[in-house]
Design a protein around this nucleic acid. Sequence first.
DNA 1: CCTGCGATCGTCT
DNA 2: GACGATCGCAGGA
Length: 201
Amino acid sequence: MTTIKLDADFYQQDALVVAQKLIGKLLVRRLQGTEVICKIVETEAYIGPEDKGCHAYQNKRTKRTEAMFTSGGHAYIYVIYGMYYCFNVVASVKDKPEAVLIRAVEPIAGIDIIRENRAIKSMKIAALTNGPGKLCQALNIDKKLNGYNLISEDELYLTGDNTDQDYQLVATKRINIDYAEDYKDKPWRFYHQGNPFVSKL
DNA sequence: CCTGCGATCGTCT
DNA sequence: GACGATCGCAGGA
């Protein structure tokens, strides 16, 4: 298939724009000599200094958040609950910490490899990739890829090839950020309506 | 279908 | 020393 990588112009927009445009785009991960491909069906935007739900609230700059301050088009990957990883796409320009959390994807190609990576009893296919920690496990995404360049490298990247344009985009509040006070109810979570791989309705 | 709970540890204070 | 942008399983309806 033709692979048209998303470029710097795409990533260096506001996280709110990137988060919405990423729905329906393809996430490509090179594993075992083949390309495992998933369609993005759910995202959340986190917006730098103003957002109390963002790790980089008030431009907080630590070893963990450093990747958020790179230019749009890099990966921001962190450990959550001591056991799982979350994969974000950095948006906006250098030194403006904005990112889009990829919360759920739908497997398109290479599902056998995804199954290998996800040892669970459940027979439900949706359980393979319907959550941020799950999709990282499914695609073997971990901290080694923190700061990875999604524009110029080939192990992990995104493409604009859409398998279908025919979906409704829904905006709701973000998941599990009850501590974020007046920012916890901002409608900055986006998903492909009705897609069975979305983590929560 | 839904709710509750324990696991587990890197990161920051 | 405390917490968290989560997950899988058990148990009940």
